[in-house]
């Protein structure tokens, strides 16, 4: 267990977005969070690297333990947490800089200046994200010229360059075409050997294809959490079954 949520409640102002969520994420496994829009799955994901800190008027109760330490404890620096837990967003969001500078953003922040080391890191990250062959000759070009799918793989490479332990993915393929989606899914499959991946998805086939564990959320509550195979073939809860068979949501 690398990340554990313990009785987490979360509020946007007076609105309670998550109620008593307790959930463990296993190391080097892919865990999918599914559920209808507004069920709190993205909120939970953004709690895991303290991205919700950036929204005014939010409040967390309960504990989120990363390697046994509560990341919401007062002495914890959110910046340090975000360096260990990378994130990929719904909409590809490369910086309007060159491909090279996108990858080196995080390493440079952490003080890596050596040219050779940086170049190795850029190539390594792009290879891991299966983008190297497509961009190795245009590293100096703006990332904005890439296609949506390439941009998303660049964002994954950019997060990997930080050498995180956990990778959070917030509907990473919802803005992409089927071919790009297939590439990202293959990529997730190859990355799980080295990283813990937590993915929020609207696409149930995707959850079934890429994940080992699945959590189903509804109205801010974790309804069911189990091995993906179990959830999709023999769910314990009626609501889960209704959702995965398309009766609501």
């Amino acid at each position: 267990m690398i990340v554990r949520a313990r009785n987490v409640d979360f509020y946007y102002g007076a609105f309670r977005a998550l109620t008593d969520v307790t959930l463990d994420f296993e190391k080097r496994r892919v865990t999918a969070l599914i559920g209808p829009s507004g069920c709190g799955k993205s909120t939970l994901l953004r709690l895991l690297n303290r991205m919700n800190d950036l929204i005014d008027g939010t409040r967390v109760e309960g504990e989120i333990l990363f390697e046994g330490r509560n990341i919401y404890a007062p002495e914890v620096d959110p910046v340090e947490i975000r360096q260990r837990i990378g994130m990929v967003f719904q909409k590809p969001n490369p910086f309007p800089k060159s491909i090279f500078d996108n990858i080196t953003f995080a390493p440079k922040l952490s003080g890596i200046r050596d040219r050779g080391e940086i170049e190795t890191l850029v190539e390594g990250s792009l290879r891991q994200a299966v983008l190297w062959d497509e961009v190795k000759d245009i590293l100096g070009k703006s990332a904005m010229n890439l296609s949506g799918g390439q941009q998303q793989r660049l964002c994954i490479a950019r997060a990997l360059a930080m050498k995180p332990d956990v990778l959070l993915m917030d509907e990473p393929t919802s803005a992409l075409d089927p071919i790009s989606t297939a590439k990202i899914e293959e990529l997730i499959d190859s990355l799980k050997k080295r990283y813990t991946i937590i993915i929020v998805t609207h696409n149930m086939q995707q959850a079934a294809r890429v994940s080992e564990y699945t959590g189903f959320f509804y109205l801010g509550k974790l309804i069911e959490f189990n091995a993906t195979e179990k959830i999709f073939t023999n769910p314990a809860m009626k609501q889960t079954e209704d959702y995965i068979t398309g009766r609501f949501g």
Binding site: L54, V79, L109
Partner: peptide, 27 residues
């Protein structure tokens, strides 16, 4: 400057000051 860029920067472990200087102002 799109909120997406700022979120990307924070998610890569940048502080507020680093985000302003390296992402927001250049954009």
């Amino acid at each position: 400057v799109s909120r997406d860029f700022k979120e990307a920067s924070y998610a890569l472990g940048a502080t507020k000051y680093e985000t302003i200087v390296k992402v927001v102002i250049p954009a």
